[in-house]
Design a protein around this nucleic acid. Sequence first.
DNA 1: GGGAGGTGTTTAGGATAATCGACACTCCCG
DNA 2: CGGGAGTGTCGATTATCCTAAACACCTCCC
Lengths: 182, 182
Amino acid sequence: MTIDVGAHLKAVRTMYGLSQRELAKRAGVTNGTISLIEQNRVSPSVSSLKKVLDGVPMSLAEFFTLDLQVNPQVFFSRDDLADIGDREVSLRLVAAQRPNRAMTIMHERYRPKADTGADMLSHKGEEGGIVVAGRVELTVGAQNRVLGPGDAYYFTSAVPHRFRNFGDESCEIISACTPPTF
Amino acid sequence: MTIDVGAHLKAVRTMYGLSQRELAKRAGVTNGTISLIEQNRVSPSVSSLKKVLDGVPMSLAEFFTLDLQVNPQVFFSRDDLADIGDREVSLRLVAAQRPNRAMTIMHERYRPKADTGADMLSHKGEEGGIVVAGRVELTVGAQNRVLGPGDAYYFTSAVPHRFRNFGDESCEIISACTPPTF
DNA sequence: GGGAGGTGTTTAGGATAATCGACACTCCCG
DNA sequence: CGGGAGTGTCGATTATCCTAAACACCTCCC
């Protein structure tokens, strides 16, 4: 959970092929500051860290979201996707086992009569998707609509939401959410 | 671009229904600190901001990624998706006009012979997707594979990558990337 | 009126971070 | 064997942040 600011900064800097002095010059700070931060001998203030990142340039959000590990698995056969759903709703995850993902991509299938429930889901982050086949009724806060193939949605997950398939045909959606909730 | 740390913190705190003193107690800092930060009279050090957020709890990445505005549009008809592609590659974006999105969700279509080019793309973030129809050859770094319907991929965008459709049929992919590059 | 208990704000002083300038090291070249 | 130009690291001073304790304000209740 605890983030290694120094290692992150060093990784970012070297990724850009910059020396401490070069980055310091661009950022308008001294090379000593960069050195101390990278060694975790100090914890920079947000404003000074922002100044440093402006020299790259990179936003604070990008900096803290950055994943330093490399995981080799890139391709996933349809049978490799991790299925974590139940009978009514099937959720098949891409790269489920990858640690520290920035987001989750899923292939969802709602069978006829499937319903995520009346006590509506809400969690942090944002999510969106595109309907591939079938129809689904989506309720987000006070808004409500039936989506068909090619239609899409996007909302902040903090708003309560509900998926219902009241048709006779299964509904398929490809969706993504960030940060990962699965 | 510049982030209002004070307003962010205040929004987060009130979202959780906490007073400055309550949050301070949970976080192990003083209420004065919270007050000064919220007024932007000081720029907290990363370590103290982390301590404060631990009291919520919320990660630094979530904090800086947090979108304070609310955008009402949730649903998008297939014709509402913004098409930014060319003749060979069509990219249709969900919620393209939404400011400060955490990610981009796209419906991509590669026509026969489409190729994103030999000078391979690379940018920050992570991306992944699932093939809906057709076949596509994906190269990521030194790895290479042909993906068909239901197959998926996920990788760090910093690694150079390339999409090629050398078949006779159009290939459709639904993908997501974060942070948004479109 | 006068507490008690809650809110956010302010101030003085000690703790922490940023700067400046030196230091030690490596590599390359005359 | 020296420069010279690059690297990252390290003290001593200056600037900034964090804490503790007051302050001012509000609402409720006796």
